[in-house]
């Protein structure tokens, strides 16, 4: 699909553009919408945002590259970002992160073979009193340990499988 002319986004796009004094200001919210549509910030998304805001695609690409929450590469179904910054690390986040990568068989920033999980570490997420913690597709999951994490992974796998089946049944 696309984000331009997509009724799913039209209202949000207009809302964001209206919010600011200049069109350019809407580049960040629109990049989120592009990422939502394509799963990552691909060239199509960049071009569409550029077109909507009357910007050169270079400018949009530049913004996408500066901020870490825009992914310029495809990710797994679940994008897991483990905070390993100092406060979390003091609570064992580094070990937790290493364990998680091993559990899923991935390198830093890599995606598991089944395409399900991408694991990377991130800087402080303002949840230092609930370490170890991570962000799963930008949703906070706090006060983790290995057992809890195993359960979550299983649950997410099941959810993904269900939605896949749902899709093929449609």
């Amino acid at each position: 699909m696309a984000i331009i002319g997509n009724s799913k986004y039209e209202e949000r796009i207009n809302h964001h553009i209206a919010k600011y004094e200049t069109k350019r200001s809407a580049v960040m919210p629109l990049l989120y919408i592009a990422q939502e549509e394509y799963g990552w910030v691909n060239q199509d998304g960049i071009n569409e945002v550029a077109q909507l805001l009357n910007l050169d695609p270079t400018q949009v690409k530049s913004i996408a590259g500066f901020y870490t929450m825009y992914s310029e590469k495809p990710k797994g179904v679940y994008w897991l970002q483990v905070c390993t910054d100092l406060p979390c690390a003091l609570q064992g986040a580094d070990d937790f992160h290493a364990w998680l990568k091993e559990e899923l068989g991935v390198e830093e920033g890599g995606t598991s073979a089944d395409g399900m999980f991408t694991v990377e570490h991130v800087m402080c997420l303002a949840a230092c009193d609930k370490a170890p913690m991570l962000q799963c597709n930008f949703r906070y999951v706090e006060d983790l340990d290995q057992n809890k994490m195993r359960e979550l992974l299983a649950k997410w796998r099941a959810e993904a499988a269900a939605s896949m089946n749902g899709r093929s049944a449609e």
């Binding site: 050169d56 400018q59 690409k61 530049s62 590259g65 500066f66």
Partner: peptide
Amino acid sequence: GDDVLAFHER
């Protein structure tokens, strides 16, 4: 007035 160059990453 043709901003076709920019920085990427940080």
